[in-house]
Design a protein around this nucleic acid. Structure first.
Lengths: 255, 255
DNA sequence: AAGTGGTCTAGACCACCCA
DNA sequence: GGGTGGTCTAGACCACTTC
């Protein structure tokens, strides 16, 4: 059983870093690097790959895998022949998706939620199809109003396969759903397909969001997948258009 | 010197594939795989990595690098323990950006444009700042109505640094701007930062798009960069909300 | 149990940037 | 010319899916 939990010598520059045995190395290296660059100014150069790889005790291939994921997520940039540098966090975030709570925090707002309902019911045709369930199978349906600094930002409806999240409707759902999924059920979302469109709010929606009727809103329909790419979460979120936008860095693939 | 150019037996299934010596292997493999999956139905399983790597005469690491890039661009999906499969091109594209013409084509619509104006003028403060120009430097400003199957879809305003695109205002701008940039000026866009938000159309905009006044619209503000990550294109596009949405696959990075 | 993708290694050489 | 990232290899073992 032995989970050594090594002496954890402080991460002083140049010190050897000890990795757990129970997790994947490149992900641990990624996390350590993330901590490291958090303390560095934008544009600062990282130590060479060969040096850092040795410090982490991993091969250069594995180390580069970790760095590549940081490049993809927009945390660092590589310049051949020159080095690897801390990226500007304000603009260089790759297109990604965050939970509402995480996103509010990233914008410097305090997230909170009001749960309208949390019930178990049959998936029905369309939701069932998206989640890969038969229409009769049970899903947990959650409706919430989500707020930033106490101001309503978004109306959210989420469906989850009941089998994967037994008893979730009795848990505290006023915080981050993704944290509950991860902490209680070991489900980590890793990818999503989403459709972004716009609507004009009806009176009821407008009232719930505290905006004038017939305001414009952004709608995000999201289908979230776990690490094995099984569909887990089907969410429809209606964001008030006056206080919310979507910012992303996107690539162009020349085919 | 000897570049043997071996007997080059045809690409029949199961046959060895010969790669050039002058280009990077994983890119050549990527291109070959792209050709291969183009002939395969969606959902079809590819041969195992070990088999294909041998067929290309590359190591499995190199082969996986090629496949990873196809995963990132949304052409195939990998399922651990099961295999690698041809992705559904309708939904499984990584978050990317396309030119309007390309995007319409991808949706099966015929793109066209009406040029409202194409003039050279001073960049001004905000556009200049975004394009990295002094406010007095010249930009080419293009306004167009963009259509799909003859129906107005989008009002577009684009600013380009005049120095990079001399004489562009006299060219035919009724087609793909990105094609002009690439073919005439050798400028290839590779990345963009964009903000997606929503507005309510005023009467004038609504009329230009042929929708009722006060309809909701999607606005995309995009700053496009070339391969050297120099800002090239600053575009504001107003899409009618009843005929346009944004579909993308996004990742989640566990921080 | 067999087959598939996922992780990891040690070492070599190439391409590029910069003093 | 020295240092950096980029490419590439052969082989091993692990994790997961499928039968």
């Amino acid at each position: 059983m032995m989970t050594p939990a090594p002496p954890a010598s402080g991460d002083e520059a140049g010190d050897r870093v000890v990795l757990d045995a129970d997790s994947v190395k490149h992900q641990q290296v990624r996390r350590h690097l993330l901590d490291m660059i958090a303390t560095m100014p934008v544009g600062e150069q990282l130590p060479p790959e060969r040096v850092l790889a040795a410090r982490f005790g991993v091969s250069r291939v594995t180390f580069r895998q970790a760095v590549s994921s940081l490049v993809e997520s927009g945390h660092v940039v590589r310049r051949q022949g020159a080095g690897t540098f801390v990226a500007d966090p304000r603009i260089s975030k790759r297109a990604e998706f965050l939970g509402f709570s995480e996103e509010m925090a990233a914008r410097g707002l305090i997230p909170s939620s009001r749960v309208i309902s949390a019930t178990t019911r049959a998936a029905g045709n369309s939701v069932g199809a998206e989640l890969g369930l038969s229409p009769a199978e049970k899903v947990v349906h959650i409706e919430r109003v989500r707020m930033g600094n106490g101001i309503p930002i978004c109306l959210e409806e989420v469906d989850l396969p009941a089998r994967r999240v037994p008893g979730i409707e009795d848990l505290d759902l006023t915080g981050s759903l993704y944290a509950v999924l991860s902490d209680t059920y070991g489900i980590v979302l890793s990818e999503a397909e989403q459709v972004i469109r716009t609507i004009v709010l009806d009176e009821q929606q407008a009232q719930a969001l505290g905006v004038p009727p017939f305001s414009a809103a952004l709608v995000i329909e999201r289908l979230g997948f776990d690490a094995q790419r099984r569909p887990i979460e089907r969410a429809v979120s209606v964001y008030r258009g006056d206080r919310y936008d979507i910012r992303q860095t996107v690539k162009r693939f020349v085919h």
